[in-house]
Design a protein around this nucleic acid. Structure first.
Length: 297
DNA sequence: AATCCAGACTGTGTTACTTCA
DNA sequence: CGTGAAGTAACACAGTCTGGA
């Protein structure tokens, strides 16, 4: 029973890969979820699936059988046991894989499998013994392999099963290695982007802090002005105007009296900046305070 | 010896699909 | 026959471990 179900699992994988190969859209499209199990998969995907002589075809619900017709008409033997590659792929992708960890026997074997060399390292594909978890060893990918993976990553950030298999074959790697490489690559890309974003936000924060400091100073200056020149603030023709460069709204007397104010605030708009390209109203755009054309020091 | 990078793994959440009541 | 719940596989991602440079 279990064997049959386990086989069903492998069976599914085999069919799935064939289907992928046959139907994967060329322009990377989202192939994910495009596969469906062919057989009721009652059993844990615990692998490695033992190689057994093919038993008679398991029961097929009619609907499934119909679906499998497609595979069989393409010459796919749905009854065959999964190949080791398929089993590997099946086990590798499953989060529940039982042979996921190398650690048992991995550390113990450390050193014996060590003496590789560069040439040996270039090929990370493992022998059968290694596949069984006896002598698996973390291997550095060769430069060529890394470069090729990088190129692929530039084209698409995720791989469909077909691409993964093709890459693995091409690079003499296990599909799981390709998969892991892409996962790590995505993670590191994201991490880098996060760092960049963080730096950007820090700059924004500094800019806003500085701007806030300027505004506080202006407020203080205006208060002082109000107390020393009580009538000054009651000038009738006061209008709102906007600093052309930083778009800051300021209360500016339309008369020339404003120019007589002894504060740095008066100097703010006294010398209109030459038609500088207007920034989009993005308050978070980090700009050095001096870039606004006025100083509040 | 300490540090960093990258390969590999585990755990979790999501989605699509099948089966069954 | 249609439908919703349960089960499963595949996948991506975050977090972590660890070997190697």
């Amino acid at each position: 029973m279990e064997q049959g179900l386990a086989l069903g699992m492998g069976l599914d994988v085999g069919r799935r890969e064939e289907e992928e190969a046959a139907s994967a859209d060329e322009e990377d499209g989202e192939v994910r979820r495009s596969v469906e199990p062919a057989v009721p998969l009652k059993l844990l995907p615990l692998l490695p699936v033992p190689r057994q002589p093919s038993p008679p075809l398991l029961r097929f619900p009619s609907s499934t059988a119909t679906r499998n017709l497609d595979a069989s008409t393409r010459g796919i033997d749905t009854n065959r046991a999964p190949s080791t590659e398929e089993a590997e792929e099946a086990s590798s992708s499953s989060p529940n894989r039982a042979v996921s960890s190398f650690r048992t026997g991995f550390s113990a074997q450390r050193g014996s499998a060590e003496r590789g060399g560069v040439a040996e390292r270039a090929s990370s594909i493992l022998s059968d013994e290694e596949e069984n978890g006896l002598a698996k060893k973390k291997l550095r990918l060769s430069k060529e392999q890394s470069a090729f993976l990088e190129e692929s990553f530039k084209e698409h950030k995720t791989l469909n099963p077909r691409q993964k298999l093709a890459l693995a074959k091409q690079l003499n790697l296990r599909p799981r290695q390709v998969e892991v490489w892409f996962q790590n690559r995505r993670a590191r890309t994201k991490l880098k982007q996060t760092e960049v974003d963080c730096e950007y936000l820090k700059r924004c924060c500094r800019t806003l802090t500085e701007e806030n400091r300027c505004l506080q100073k202006e407020v203080a200056e205006l208060r002082a002005l109000k107390s020393t020149h009580p009538f000054y603030m009651h000038l009738p023709a006061t209008t709102l105007s906007m600093c052309p460069s930083c778009e800051r709204v300021a209360s500016t007397p339309a008369t020339a009296a404003a120019d007589h104010r002894p504060s740095s605030f008066a100097a703010l708009f006294s010398k209109p900046t030459p038609a500088a390209p207007r920034q989009p109203p993005d308050n978070f755009r980090p700009q050095p305070p001096a870039a606004t054309g006025h100083s509040c020091t």
